[in-house]
């Protein structure tokens, strides 16, 4: 097995130290950083994503795999040249005002990171303005808006309206999620996508950036 294949296996196994070690070895041997990302780190996470979808892996295993991928990323990222990017795209994510729930949102953020996205997690209980500021500051491809309570769902619509009023709505794709949220609701409030779980969110985000 080549070192590259080993990285893939160690990412799947969630071996943080192993991935870091192998990545460093490949870098020292002169492998191209962008190849290490594509054929090693992200390739491993692709397998993880597929297995998770088929219920073959548990959530904590996915998270530790993502952590091991990041251990490799931390080594190769600084070596990328100006034209190259380690990230598939950027996602700004947060829970709307009045809602303190964040487990689902955190899970989506971690799955997105695992798939190679750069994720800016704004946190919880966020006034719509904070989404606007984050869009202006980070220029993301995707904005993810989360709510768990039926009483805070209207704040999702409010957030989208505020993005429109600020003139930044069309710069981004918006996806929404949370237990009471549905595809129908997403359509009603003018979101571009609805994700029922972390792996769907990842699929949708990929479609958005392609």
């Amino acid at each position: 097995m080549s070192k590259m294949e080993n990285i893939v296996e160690e990412v799947i196994a969630g071996n943080v130290a192993g991935v870091a070690e192998l990545t460093q070895e490949l870098v020292d041997e002169g492998a191209k950083p962008s190849d290490i990302i594509k054929d090693g780190l992200v390739a491993g996470m692709d397998v993880v994503g597929g297995r998770f979808k088929k219920n073959e892996m548990f959530v904590p295993e996915v998270l530790i795999a993502a952590k091991s991928m990041h251990a490799g990323m931390d080594i190769v990222k600084p070596l990328l040249t100006d034209g190259e990017s380690s990230s598939v795209g950027t996602v700004v994510i947060g829970t709307v005002e009045g809602d303190l729930h964040d487990i689902g949102k955190n899970l989506v953020a971690m799955m997105l990171e695992g798939a190679g996205f750069e994720v800016i997690d704004l946190g919880i209980d966020l006034p719509a303005d904070e989404f606007v500021e984050a869009v202006k500051e980070h220029q993301p491809d995707v904005v993810g808006i989360s709510a768990l309570l039926t009483t805070t769902m209207p704040a999702m619509e409010e957030t989208i309206k505020t993005l429109e009023e600020a003139g930044v709505r069309d710069q981004v794709k918006i996806m929404v999620g949370g237990a009471p949220v549905s595809q129908e609701f997403a359509n009603e409030i003018g979101a571009d996508g609805y994700a029922a779980d972390g792996s769907t969110a990842t699929d949708i985000a990929r479609e958005f950036v392609n």
Binding site: F52, M57, F58, V59, P60, I103, G104, L107, D197, G198
Partner: peptide
């Protein structure tokens, strides 16, 4: 409990 295959 959380179902660890779906996080549901």
């Amino acid at each position: 409990i959380t179902d660890m295959q779906t996080a549901n």
